[in-house]
Amino acid sequence: MSFVKEAYIAQLAVKRASLLTKRIADEHLQRGIEKKDKSPVTIGDFAAQAVIIHSILKNFPEDLIVGEEDSSLIKSQHLEPKILKKIDWVQKSDSVSNDKLGVITNAEELCLAVDKGNSKGGHKGRIWALDPIDGTSGFLRGAQYAVCLALIVDGVVQVGVVGCPHLPHSLYEKDSKIGGIYTAVKGQGAYFQDLAAAVTSPYDSSHPIHLHNDYDFSKARVVEGVEKGHSSHELQSLIESKLKIAQPPVRLDSQVKYCAVANGDAEIYLRLPTSLSYREKIWDHASGWLLVHESGGIVTDIFGNKLDFGSGRTLNSQGVIAATATLHPEIIKTVKDLVGEHGQMLYRFCSA
């Protein structure tokens, strides 16, 4: 099977970063720092990005990485000691993986690793897309977030791994265990394993997951974003009403929504534009796209167009709709009925 080593290293790295960020969240250290674009970032973002990039480059030194963060705030806010303390903790706690993932020992190695996430992406070569904490707002609230890593080869997503430290194994089972790792490899299916389980190979501790292509809209469950700035709740409500979806939506932060669909806890994920000019980032969707695809679903933009992960650091498309293969075509038709075949009326639900 192809990409076995890549999937294995990605699982080990995502697990290490998930344990690290969970530790920070549990210690209530997740106070945010404001970036230039006014979005929040935490020491968890920097620590997780450093740990994962260092791990990837130890094993695949010629690969490139598209990461969300750089070290400028680390240096200006003098965060190196705090971040290194957390990294040292996880490297000791997860010492069984040190031979495979390496260790970070000083501020220079920390900042160098973070800054290696500076690839501009593209259609050629091996490029990893990394979001060290997807859903920073959820992380700050003590709610859902995800650690997301995907390998894109010549513009095609080949491996996707998502760590979900706070996500129940089942959204609907009382007392469900918490925390998991979701893995997909193109052409090889999608898999789930408990976060606490040992990662000994890509699939030894995992079991296959599938979504519900047998459900119609009367049984369909929707997951959507918590933040109003991330997805148009008004348009979501109209779509759900027209499709006669009876189940109330579940609102979650981050790519855990893709995991819920892939795992059969939901059949539809709607991320609808709130701005006409905004384009989605590849690190926000690459892993989740592959998970849903390999579990039997479809993911496109809101007009039904394929997502292009080789066009740079962003997707040249508006919004995202992930759903079962059964329901996806009718959802796209409903969206077009509401906003126009080419989005002529999308402005009604968006800012400029």
Rank of each mutant, 00 (worst) to 15 (best):
L272M: 14
N213T: 07
A143P: 01
A260W: 07
A17S: 02
Y191W: 15
I43N: 00
L20G: 00
G163V: 02
I52H: 00
A197K: 06
I53R: 00
F309N: 05
F303T: 03
K186T: 14
S351L: 10
H233M: 10
L235V: 14
L291T: 09
S277E: 14
T183C: 07
H212A: 07
F139S: 02
P329T: 12
E330H: 13
K116P: 01
A184F: 08
K86N: 09
M1I: 05
D194C: 07
L307M: 12
T326G: 02
N316Q: 15
Y172L: 09
C148T: 13
K186D: 13
S176W: 05
V222A: 07
S232T: 15
V261C: 11
G288F: 04
P202D: 04
I282H: 08
G312R: 09
R16T: 01
I53N: 00
A260Y: 09
Y172T: 14
Q11H: 01
V153D: 15
A25R: 03
K174Q: 08
V14A: 00
V250L: 13
D253L: 04
Q11M: 05
Y269E: 06
H169K: 12
E69T: 03
A146M: 03
Q188N: 12
S137P: 01
A184S: 11
W283F: 10
L151N: 05
L140D: 05
A286W: 04
F303R: 03
L235D: 09
W283D: 08
H28L: 06
Q236S: 15
N118C: 14
L307D: 10
Y258L: 04
Q30S: 06
V41D: 02
Y215S: 10
W89A: 04
A262N: 07
R279P: 04
L20H: 01
E280Q: 13
I239H: 09
K22Q: 10
T326K: 11
S311F: 06
E173D: 12
L235K: 10
D284V: 06
T136H: 05
N213G: 04
I298E: 05
Q247C: 09
K75L: 11
F303W: 12
L307T: 13
A146I: 03
E267N: 13
T300G: 08
A10I: 01
I239R: 08
N59R: 04
R23C: 00
Q49K: 02
V4A: 07
E62K: 14
Q30G: 03
I268C: 09
S119R: 11
A198H: 06
Q193N: 11
